[in-house]
Amino acid sequence: MNSEGHTFRNGKEEHLRREESVRSSPAPLEFDTPEQVLRRDREEVAVPTEVARRLEASLGQEPVRRVSWWRRWLGLGRGKGE
């Protein structure tokens, strides 16, 4: 294999790699205001399910009526005796 052909092929592969890299790289995100930045960030944030579980447990300790609806709301299924 001559070195010229080898260099050409390497150069072509490099070019293709760069093109692929450009295609697969997401476009930068741009925002006009801080509020837009924060709103976009908020979309990425979910409340950990642990919070709902802890809240359900806490409400179960409260001296109030039915809390079994929490299980349905939080997708935890039915509790004992329901």
């Binding site: 995100l29 006009d32 837009q36 930045v37 990425e44």
Partner: peptide, 29 residues
């Protein structure tokens, strides 16, 4: 514009930015 290269860096950039602001500014924003 305010720019981020990838969405995964957004949270850290915001955390770092808000750390530099007073509590009042942070809360208002």
């Amino acid at each position: 514009p305010l720019r981020v290269l990838e969405i995964k860096e957004l949270g850290e950039r915001i955390r770092s930015t808000l750390d530099h602001l007073s509590e009042e500014y942070r809360l208002l924003l």
